[in-house]
Amino acid sequence: MTSLGVAFADDALEARVSHGVDLVEEHLARVIDSDEQFITEAAAHLLNAGGKRFRPMLVLVCAEFGDPTHPDVVPAGTAVELTHLATLYHDDVMDEADIRRGAESANSRWDNSLAILVGDYLFAHASEVVSTLGPEAVGVQARTFARLVKGQIRETIGPRDGEDPLAHYLSVVADKTGSLIATSAQFGATMGRAPDDVVAALTEFGERIGVAFQLSDDILDVASESSDSGKTPGTDLREGVPTLPVILVQRSTDPADAELVRLLSGPITDDVDVSRALDALRAHPAMDEARAVVQAEADAARALLAKLPDTPARVALRAICDTLATRLS
């Protein structure tokens, strides 16, 4: 497992991708630089807090199915990471978060208005970078942005009357997380000038693997004894966020689950109640059901790889699918 979070069986591929990520880092720093010192500082706040750069990495791996040295590949990686960073600034405002990537969130360090404006600044620069990649890329970026916003709106308002909460949640995850990872794969393949059928397969792969990783985070928020998911276990319960295991429990009609369903009906503010809820969820069959949902997404993503040429890049993408099983074991 490398610092990029992917097991590369091929040293040459790993070296190329690592070098590409370094070039993306340099491009990111140049793009967010401003003649206004505060803007540069605020825009670099989360950038400098770290992250695995999974989306740029995926751009670079998917470009391997064409020409990974094409000059459009690195800007594409920069654009998706700028878009991702922008969503983090906005998400922290929506979630009233204090910590992001182990550092003080921008809204906590400054205020909500500035965090929103910095997110807008990053979105604008992402669009500027994408504009250099051609009109088709601009269209993809616009549709991705629309899905990101739609997912956030639908999460905020919740399911409509009569709408299945699980179906609603899965569609929100697809929009909020799957869409940008799908675009990362699509941009990599497209900017590398891969064949159209390869671009289509990689785009669907990205969407499915993005959904699977988000759902696996839902499970880790309950199952982990430490901060394996990047946050304190039970965070979603404290915030009243209805994630996959919780929704599956709430569908139960078993009288034995009535007390747990009641406990999960809203934010849990008491630490003792959080511990009770975590213990009950960890022992509940819904956890295995949730793992099965994640496994089904990972299996569907892995099946798409059969459509691709047998190369070290395909092996690396298969390793991403395998990582999901490792996370949840």
Rank of each mutant, 00 (worst) to 15 (best):
M1N: 09
L166V: 14
R276W: 07
D22R: 13
G151T: 09
T177D: 12
L220G: 01
A325D: 14
T87S: 07
R101A: 04
R143Q: 12
A9P: 01
E289L: 11
V315N: 10
T326I: 12
E36C: 14
G240A: 10
H70W: 10
S131V: 09
A306N: 13
L88W: 00
Q152M: 07
K176W: 00
H84Y: 03
R291H: 06
A306S: 15
D310F: 09
A49L: 12
T235A: 14
R100I: 04
E81M: 02
R193H: 13
F205K: 04
V272F: 08
D236H: 07
I219K: 00
L85E: 02
A7P: 00
G192Y: 07
R53Y: 08
L237M: 10
A182E: 11
D279K: 14
V149G: 06
D196V: 15
A182C: 09
F145I: 15
L180C: 14
L46S: 11
G20R: 04
H168E: 00
G266L: 08
A319M: 07
D310H: 08
D279H: 13
A49R: 05
E259S: 07
G234K: 01
F8P: 01
A7S: 13
R100H: 01
R55T: 06
A86M: 01
T156S: 14
A115G: 02
A79F: 02
L23M: 15
A325M: 11
D164Q: 04
R251F: 03
P285Y: 08
S34R: 08
F38S: 15
P56D: 11
E259Y: 01
Q214S: 06
S171Y: 01
L215N: 01
D271N: 06
D196P: 11
R53C: 09
L260F: 05
G188Q: 05
F205Q: 04
L220R: 02
T253A: 14
I320M: 13
A185R: 01
S227F: 00
P285N: 09
P71Q: 12
H27P: 00
S18T: 15
F145S: 14
A292R: 15
K307G: 09
E36R: 12
D257G: 02
D221G: 05
L220I: 08
V199L: 06
S265F: 04
D10V: 04
D254C: 08
D98P: 05
D11S: 14
R314E: 09
T78Y: 04
L244C: 05
Q250I: 00
A124S: 14
S3V: 13
G234T: 08
V80C: 03
M287N: 10
A306W: 05
S329H: 13
D271G: 09
V17L: 10
R327F: 06
E259W: 03
V246D: 02
V80A: 04
R30P: 03
D22H: 11
P309L: 09
R193L: 13
S113Y: 01
A97F: 07
R251P: 00
A306Q: 11
D197H: 13
K150V: 11
G234D: 03
E225K: 06
E104Q: 15
E41V: 15
R154C: 09
E104M: 14
D95A: 05
F205D: 02
A142I: 11
I209L: 10
E239D: 09
A286D: 08
D322V: 11
A9L: 04
